[in-house]
Write a protein that binds this DNA or RNA. Structure first.
Lengths: 338, 338
DNA sequence: TTGAAAGCGCTACCAT
DNA sequence: ATGGTAGCGCTTTCAA
């Protein structure tokens, strides 16, 4: 028999096959098998198996007003190779909750955001995750006002549930990595320091607090953008004009890559001459030689936490901080005696 | 008036407000506004605007049997920081088609695949994209047999629509990068060469063809896994035992990173002493110093193409090859005279 | 313990 | 040109 395009099997088919009403079949197959004799229960189950019945979740959702679907709207989170693990964490948690993820990207076009949100709402999602590639303060799209929503990696007004990395404590941890190794002098910051970007501000705040706790501070600050080339150029120039750092705190791994390149070009070794710590724990960190000690962005955890909160019964009325794990690798050593 | 949780406004509300039947309202708001007087049309549109009506897409889909949703099941595509752009391409194309993407990851657990597929089917997706992080031959989950499906970055039996990179031509292009610069001798392959992995096999095939076309071939082959450290170790050892390559073909960018590190450690410069070409065009390629000439994995295009084919009227009965763009950067120079 | 029937919110047919 | 009505496939009273 040619397996031609046969009609999908419906609940009613199963019921018929088992000689019961579709109401009873629904009861059994929906798992709420109270008030049904074991005999009919088995008959229904077997019928479903024999006919290879799969419920139409769309119809079920329309009836129950529960779609078991979460909407996720991001700006450029997959694009940038940043934030991908937020999605993975959300994916994993969603799976555990029996939910599926409806994902969209606004591609950085703010006009698109409300459109996407509206569409998700129209599709009856049970909740919405709103997330950005870089930790920032955002204006919440008005369409989200009435919705169950959790922000991820961004923050809005007070009372809006959001999940972000604990950058300040991360900064402290980074400082500790250096001070615990004995560093007190020649500690230099490399990164965008005169910015309103949250990660920069808060990491810096934590760093200053951490260094102060050990009775020290930055010997110097090198301002540069968040990219390898910027880090290379800025540090190369600083080195050329006589700077001799004993330890570098790079505001992210990409800058650290640039710093490694600049140090190598100047004939300085890591960590023999200069220790380096950084932030993010991107793949890069374990690829560099020596491997890079860095404070990890807890993306996976953030995604997972956000879903748990979104689906939980009392979403937090404000910001939830997720700890940034310390990845101790090979780029830190005690200061060389000179 | 406190904006308390008021009932969602329905099509019937709009109809009532405009003094027409819901049938007419549906016609107008559905865009098929033939056979309706301009006057009532305007009334309905205005009513919808005033009441801020949003159709329930779930209900619409149930009725029309079209969900304007695409399911995407991946293995570890977001995890691995590989394949993320496939998703982005699919996202962009979906948006253009007015579709949304329901994304799931099997997290490498093959048992999960049919479960996820079944769930997507139950949710009435209009089609399914099945994709893997690394280009491979896969066994198509049985549940996909009756479905409209396009494979991305993987291939199954004959007749199954799938979209993959044109690795062979990519290999040719890589060879050309070197031979065009004048290289004929001391060209060494670095990568996993004794493998059944499709990218390795086909890139190699293209490389051999390309080199042969210029009357040359590989002077040597260094076997190593697809990671920076493996590349570093393997090349370091080869260099130590006297190998003096004039050009390296690395089977991907990560290996190229390891190769850069090994060459630097051996005091060899790129491209002065040794030219390097590679595959993938990951972010890394533009971060290295000198920047790396590499044959790009056309992930975005693959994702976009797959969606177009999935939603088009005649899905291809087999493999569609997407060209791998050449990214010419700074890691290739004419062979040094020695 | 089971079944009949109503209805989730929408579209599409067939009247008028 | 417009409206009544019958579903899409399921769950959920309510009655038997």
């Amino acid at each position: 028999m040619a397996s031609s395009a046969r009609r999908r099997v419906l609940l009613r088919d199963v019921a018929e096959h088992a000689g019961v009403s579709s109401a009873t079949a629904s009861l059994v197959l929906g798992g709420r098998d109270v008030r049904v004799s074991e005999d009919t229960r088995q008959r229904i189950l077997r019928a479903a198996r024999e006919l290879d019945y799969r419920p139409n979740l769309m119809a079920r959702s329309l009836r129950t007003q529960v779609s078991s679907t979460i909407g996720l709207v991001a700006d450029t989170i997959i694009t940038g190779h940043y934030g991908g693990d937020i999605i993975r964490g959300a994916l994993t948690a969603s799976l555990e909750h029996g939910h599926r993820l409806l994902i969209c990207e606004s591609e950085g076009d703010p006009k698109l955001e409300p459109v996407l949100v509206d569409d998700l709402v129209a599709r009856q999602v049970d909740g919405i995750l709103f997330t950005t590639a870089s930790h920032d303060v955002v204006e919440l799209p008005a369409a989200l006002a009435d919705q169950r929503v959790v922000l991820v990696n961004c923050e809005a007004g007070p009372g809006v549930p959001s999940v972000v990395p604990d950058e300040v404590e991360g900064g402290r941890a980074a400082a500790r990595l250096l001070t615990d190794a004995g560093h007190r002098e020649g500690i230099v910051l490399v990164g965008e320091t005169l910015t309103r970007k949250l990660p920069a501000q808060r990491r810096l705040e934590g760093l200053l607090a951490g260094l102060a706790a050990a009775g020290t501070g930055f010997a110097d600050r090198i301002d540069c953008a968040w990219w390898p080339e910027a880090g290379f150029d800025a540090l190369t120039e600083a080195l050329a004009s006589g700077l001799r750092p004993r330890a570098l705190v790079c505001l992210n791994d990409r800058i650290a890559l640039g710093a490694y390149q600049a140090l190598a070009a100047a004939g300085l070794s890591v960590p023999g001459d200069v220790s380096v710590v950084s932030f993010d724990d991107s793949e890069l960190a374990s690829w560099l030689r020596p491997t890079l000690s860095t404070i990890a962005l807890p993306e996976f955890d953030m995604g997972r936490t956000a879903v748990d909160l979104l689906l939980g019964d009392d979403p937090p009325a404000g910001v939830v901080l997720v700890p940034m794990p310390v990845r101790e690798r090979a780029s830190v050593a005690p200061p060389s005696s000179r």
